[in-house]
Nucleic acid binder design. Sequence first.
DNA 1: CGGAGAATTGAATTTTATCAACTGATGTGG
DNA 2: CCACATCAGTTGATAAAATTCAATTCTCCG
Lengths: 244, 244
Amino acid sequence: MEVICAECPLRRLPAFQSLTGDDLAVTDRLKRGELRVEAGMPILMQGATSPQLFTVLRGQGLRTKTLPDGERQVLGFVFPGDFLGLQAAVMAEMEHSVEAATDMLLCVFDRNDLRQLYQDAPRRAFDVTWLAAMEESLLSEALATVGQLPARARVAWGLLKLLQRAEVSGLAPADEGRAAMPFRQQDLADALGLSVVHTNKMLAALRADGLATWRDGVLDVHDRAGLARAAGIPPETKRDRPLI
Amino acid sequence: MEVICAECPLRRLPAFQSLTGDDLAVTDRLKRGELRVEAGMPILMQGATSPQLFTVLRGQGLRTKTLPDGERQVLGFVFPGDFLGLQAAVMAEMEHSVEAATDMLLCVFDRNDLRQLYQDAPRRAFDVTWLAAMEESLLSEALATVGQLPARARVAWGLLKLLQRAEVSGLAPADEGRAAMPFRQQDLADALGLSVVHTNKMLAALRADGLATWRDGVLDVHDRAGLARAAGIPPETKRDRPLI
DNA sequence: CGGAGAATTGAATTTTATCAACTGATGTGG
DNA sequence: CCACATCAGTTGATAAAATTCAATTCTCCG
């Protein structure tokens, strides 16, 4: 086991809440090990039960849902600090899949220990609920965006969200508006409910307007305010999040 | 206080989990009263903090999110047994609104008691997380539907979901395929990311195909299998849910 | 009886998807 | 080292889907 919770590099990020030594110890005791996953490999499968829960230490991934007719919806992008598999632990099985977009390093927990956590560490249990509520909030915003905004605004929103997530999770400096983006345009299109072709055209439009450029795996936001305007001006919101 | 938890009529429904006397007592102690809300009135407001949490005893409502540009997305339909306001209790403020579609009767809890619940009744705390995970799952499915399916399939999916929710919450007998629907076509359209006009045309198409009729506040599903096929065949799933 | 809100229908317009072709980068086997 | 396949991105032309606009009906309510 390489990383103990007390020395977890993620804890140093301003986005994450600080913890008491006690809570740290509880978490550390529950940690079962680490798992390396190669880019492109599945982490959790839709329809399967998983004996394990994960926290992302390094790398990025995708949450995807496949419909009976074969269509794919990207539910969200996975970044360091994200908690994976709560659904499988709490309900019967996963309703979506998670796959690695880059090589990833995961912190492993046991599904059965979750009940124990609720007994022994109510504060940490509350944090788990906090994360679930946060996910719900993210999904709500995505649904509203996909349901109500035209294509250009959707793409602008998607780029802003990606940049924010990268900044908060320490993958990009906070003010440069630049971050590594290991995802494909197809992934963004599937997240926004657009065809790849149209997504590509909207990206070209945003680029032509000097708002943002996404090329060779690097996203560059040249005009954050302008991009926010194109997305329908959702003012920037930040929140301290717990880390499991 | 009219209803004590031990005699809550919702507990008799097969959809809800049974509870130990202990857990019931804890819940009962936390119940602060009941609240009557008239049709059309707001229950929780987007952007506001709420000192209270609610469980729906009677009536139906809508969860809605308003975008900065004024567009409205319906995030979901509220039925008896639903738990409202978790977001406000766990995070800083509500990210969406909840309003009554019919006259409603709500069970009232105090926001500050939630922490206490996590201390005193870990099993109930786990149930709260279960509900949050369930909401997340519902939103995921909605996002995939809105993002990937064509209009006719979306409407078919919406009608099926509405019927299922009505049946599970005891508002409609399980096998008749018929339920009271106090919502407007505009609400369904806003839930599916379609215009009212187009939603209306798709409803007409489904009616013409003998699949379902929605008229005068009553939804009639004539051919459940056919409707499911039109929606892309999401096989029927049922789950026992906890009741807070 | 008049008016407001909701449902319905047809027609014109816009948005987005689909199809098809081409580029550039990457990787593989001969 | 080159021919060849593959995969992601790009672009233009065409087709389909859904929106908007406009007009009408219906019901409920004062």
